[in-house]
């Protein structure tokens, strides 16, 4: 065990307010989600009524369903494509300058502001609509939009693991008579799996929380929870919104904790 280091009081003084700033709003939302007062910020006793009401709110359930479909479908597609992208980038003997350019291109969506990305999507889809009328705002456009930014995150996570594993194990597999397919199935995939799962969970979390890209690509029937919460907020705070927000936070935290577990690298 490492010896306990003394924490300087200044660190505590800085850390506590920061943590408060971060978590107080979340805690507040959770508290009001079980407050029986319909309006206002006065505590009037504990209730799970708003959670029960959620189950009868058709618009809310619809949005939850859309969010899940969007999240699962886009994550599934982005995980496969992102993993293949990472493998392609790492394995193909790209000349140095091209490799560097490709790296930047792959990382770009991670740092591009969502709003720019979303606006670009709108333009892209209106152009694509002239080719095929199916590119209307709606679920298909949202899935494509989400996949587009998720791929980068998946590729990033998988690629860093590939770098960590290095080329020698693949050479050892080759040396031991493995065909490309056998090598992928028995060596590459098992070793990459923690990163692929982590990448998928990250992608799913991002999709779940995404508002900007969803908002710009959504159609009339494809409201997601973030969009619903946004429009409901404008009409005034409702305890149901607090309840659904709390649920989303819990789900996100669970995913992040799961992610943490999977990214830990077991060293040989």
């Amino acid at each position: 065990m490492s010896e306990r280091r003394k924490i300087h009081p200044v660190v505590t003084m800085l850390a506590l307010p920061s943590l408060l700033l971060l978590y107080l709003p979340l805690v507040a939302v959770a508290v009001y989600s079980v407050n029986s007062a319909r309006i206002g910020l006065v505590w009037e006793g504990f209730t799970l009524r708003w959670y029960r009401e959620l189950l009868h709110n058709e618009a809310m359930l619809d949005a939850a369903r859309n969010t899940m479909i969007l999240g699962l479908v886009s994550t599934a597609i982005a995980t496969v494509l992102g993993t293949l992208l990472a493998l392609g980038l790492a394995r193909f003997p790209w000349p140095k300058p091209i490799a560097r350019t490709l790296d930047v291109i792959v990382d770009l969506p991670v740092v591009t502001p969502d709003i720019i990305f979303a606006a670009a999507m709108v333009i892209a889809f209106s152009m694509l609509r002239s080719l095929w009328a199916g590119f209307v705002p709606g679920m298909l456009a949202m899935v494509i939009g989400h996949v587009t930014f998720q791929i980068s995150f998946v590729a990033l996570v998988v690629r860093s693991r590939l770098v960590l594993i290095g080329p020698t194990l693949m050479e050892a597999g080759r040396d031991l008579y493995a065909s490309s397919f056998y090598l992928f199935r028995k060596v590459t995939l098992p070793l990459l799996l923690p990163a692929i799962v982590a990448g998928a969970m990250l992608a799913f979390t991002l999709s779940l929380d995404d508002f900007v890209i969803s908002f710009f690509t959504a159609g009339p029937k494809s409201n997601t929870l973030p969009i619903l919460i946004y429009s409901a907020q404008r009409r005034g705070l409702s305890p149901q919104i607090h309840a659904i927000s709390t649920l989303i936070v819990i789900l996100t935290v669970a995913l992040v904790l799961g992610l943490e577990r999977f990214t830990r690298y077991r060293k040989a």
Partner: peptide
Amino acid sequence: PVNTVFQSYALFPH
């Protein structure tokens, strides 16, 4: 029909 013993052994950790 050639096999290699690698410098770092390259045993499969999984």
